[in-house]
Write a protein that binds this DNA or RNA. Structure first.
Lengths: 150, 150
DNA sequence: TCGAACTGGTCTTAAAATAGGACTAGACAG
DNA sequence: CTGTCTAGTCCTATTTTAAGACCAGTTCGA
């Protein structure tokens, strides 16, 4: 059966997952943040089937997360680069990274880490209140809109 | 073919997506943050097939994101609640929400919003450097470990 | 300048995942 | 005791995925 979609949901989380919540899209975006640009680079680095990659890249371009530009090396080929909307996914990738680091590796198990320009490990993502005070989950709640179709 | 997995990857993003990067898991987690606890509540709210929900809940329990506890209303049934590891997914859900809010709704289109205890809308997630200065994507890079299998 | 190899795909196929619904055992309410 | 609710299991049709064969245009090396 066709996979259920959430494109019309009121909840931004549902819409976001509908757009980029499949098995590959965020890994492609992660690789794009890592500097990968070419079809073949993504394909080799991810080990993804070419047909899948074609479909995913096309969807990400349609969504406006990636755009195709002429290759930077002067060849006749094209490259895929993050748009502004794509760059806005940075916190999503970082939050997944930080959760993974803290919860999916054994103590001492090596993994890649995110560092700043000085090579220092970055801190944890912080959710500030309007006044700038850090908020935990229990300090927040979701204000729903009047129910529509869902 | 069997869906490609990333359980052994060096990259925490890949492992995180392997664990919770399917179409339903994060929506279940979102609903759990929203206070849903019972099988039937998740099923009704998400419109998910029961077989899917059974499989996803089981996987989330195995992962240690959810745990089953005796129902809080004194009945003989069970409930699913977030563990500490599950609560740690809060920034992931929030980052998806904020990206969705900013990029997937037309201007003026209504959507649910995250507010603090005073009902004020929360700010954007911030990634601080070790010293506490906010970092953008371009201020960071990924330090890889010595290449293994992938 | 010619052929070989590279790039960026398309197409086909088999296996696996999903949606949807029928069915069921035990709990609960009247 | 009986009907309904809960939390599932199981089955089937359809879609998605992985994997690889194949292909046209581009670039490279001699």
């Amino acid at each position: 059966m066709q996979r259920t979609g959430f494109a019309g949901a009121d909840c931004p989380v549902a819409r976001a997952l509908d757009a980029i919540g499949d098995w590959w899209s965020l890994l492609i975006v992660r690789d794009a943040f890592d500097g990968l640009r070419r079809f073949g680079d993504f394909q080799k680095n991810l080990g993804i089937a070419k047909g899948m990659l074609t479909a995913r890249l096309r969807k990400l371009v349609e969504l406006g997360v990636l755009e195709q530009v002429a290759a930077s090396d002067g060849s006749a080929y094209q490259e895929y680069v993050l748009t502004k909307k794509g760059h806005a996914l940075f916190p999503v990738v970082v939050s997944l990274r930080q959760w993974g680091e803290a919860n999916l590796f054994a103590r001492g198990e090596p993994h890649s880490v995110l560092v700043d320009a000085q090579g220092e490990r970055v801190g944890q993502l912080v959710l500030p209140s309007k006044a700038g005070r850090p908020l935990a989950w229990s300090d927040t709640k979701v204000r729903k809109v009047a129910a529509r179709k869902r």
